[in-house]
Amino acid sequence: MTNHHQPARGEPRVALVTCTALPDLDPDDRLALDPLAARGIAAEAVVWDDPAVDWSGYDLVVLRSPWDYALRRDEFVAWARTVPTLVNPADVVAWNTDKRYLAELSAAGVPTVPTAWVEPGDEWAPPAGTGEYVIKPAVSAGSQDTGRYDLADPEHRELAVAHVRRLSAAGRVTMVQPYLSAVDTAGETALLFLAGPDGLAFSHAIRKGPMLTGPDRGVAELYKEERIDARTATPEQLDTAEKTLAVVPGGTDRLLYARVDLIPGPAGAPVLVELELTEPSLFVGHADGAPDRLAAAIATHLARRS
């Protein structure tokens, strides 16, 4: 819940932006509160669409867990544009909350999961033959409205068509991607970057286990439990992440954080699944010193604005 205390004179105020379902923040984000307090920074959880909030009263507004924005993306982006001290900044939010940015990154030479895009109103049929595919909306948070389909199964083919039609009827762009089977064994690797004195720097990496077990049947489920483990990033993964970040519009110097999600492709080399610059879980609880590094990143951005 938002803390309405008045900070000590001269103490910088930071809003950690969340949603009504998580008024006290995600537990992982709360790990940064003590390191922030130790730096003399007054941080409080604030719900992004609370009309009573005076955003001008904060020295920095940090996006953390506003995970209900997906069905209200236009409203969310419009709100972001009213907050001048927002990090990551509003133009990054506008670009990154629509996963069609993957097409831009692919065109720039970043290895990405092959993706077909289905616009609302377009007819779509499953690819011929067999294989597994993932279907999800271009604007989404977590694994909401996301399903995994085995095209060798006639029922799955029908459910896949129904999924695309459901998204299309809601005016949403659909993504269709081959399911990369390596996620079932190697998992997904998330590389976390945090702002430092010399710009965005690698902080830590984690492994996420597979989450998609079958078709989406139209039941809303925003928060799914994830299996998370610490992981050591490989030089090849770090290189792919750096190549990805190098083509972020406007550069990375403005960013407080970035998360680069990778899966081994068919040949084993890492390919980009998502670039999370808006509201990613940072998994600071899975790496020694990471909560302090997040606090230091926030202090760095405060110093730039002073």
Rank of each mutant, 00 (worst) to 15 (best):
L302V: 06
A32Y: 02
A42H: 14
I135K: 12
T234N: 09
F283A: 12
P7A: 01
A78T: 10
M211T: 14
D24C: 05
P35N: 13
T278D: 04
L282G: 03
A186L: 12
E236Y: 08
S306F: 03
S56Y: 00
T213N: 10
S181T: 15
Q6I: 08
H5R: 13
A94F: 06
A169M: 11
R73I: 02
T185G: 08
W55Q: 01
T97Q: 02
L245D: 10
R165F: 10
P23Q: 09
V77N: 04
P51C: 04
D29E: 08
Y223I: 15
C19L: 04
S65N: 04
L33P: 00
A287Y: 03
Y149R: 11
P210I: 14
D91A: 14
T20P: 06
A258Q: 08
P215S: 13
R166K: 03
M211F: 03
A246P: 01
V17I: 10
G289A: 11
D49H: 14
L36T: 05
L256A: 10
L275F: 08
E155H: 05
A70T: 03
A290H: 05
A162K: 07
V47D: 08
A78H: 04
L192M: 15
D26F: 09
L60E: 07
E44Q: 13
E274L: 02
W124I: 07
G121I: 04
A108R: 15
